[in-house]
């Protein structure tokens, strides 16, 4: 049984705002399925006494003191923006018509 369906891949692509063609959907769902099945095999050997790993370094409480530091100049900030107006980033319409 496949670990991920073609529909799920299409859904994820939409959530990630990726324009995926029908052919790519076929390719990606097969490739992602291989990846997920491979990862699932780890679950078979890991016993219940091994907690899932989210971080590879054994650190906790890495904190910074509440001291302000200068950031970027606004010109530099907006230089990377596709468009700007009144010192703000200018972005296209956010909601689709039906929303």
């Amino acid at each position: 049984m496949a670990a991920i369906s073609r529909e799920e891949v299409a859904h994820l692509a939409r959530l990630a705002r990726l324009a995926v063609t029908e052919e790519e959907l076929d390719t990606f769902s097969v490739q992602l399925d291989v990846i997920l099945q491979s990862v699932a095999r780890i679950g078979e050997v890991a016993a219940t006494d091994i907690p899932p790993t989210s971080h590879s370094v054994p650190l906790t409480n890495v904190l910074r003191e509440d001291q302000p530091r200068p950031g970027l100049q606004r010109d530099a900030v907006l230089a990377g923006a596709p468009d700007a107006e009144d010192g703000r980033f200018r972005v296209p319409r956010i909601l689709d018509e039906e929303a």
């Binding site: 890495v62 904190l63 910074r64 530091r69 606004r74 900030v77």
Partner: peptide, 30 residues
């Protein structure tokens, strides 16, 4: 470490971390 002063000019209290620029890394405020 960007300041949080209310009412500052737009986009003057920003840095690579809060703008999500590549390579920047967050550190939590104690």
């Amino acid at each position: 470490g960007c300041p949080t002063t209310f009412g500052a000019e737009p986009n003057t209290q920003v840095c690579p971390v809060c703008l999500g620029l590549p390579g920047s890394l967050p550190v939590a405020n104690r």
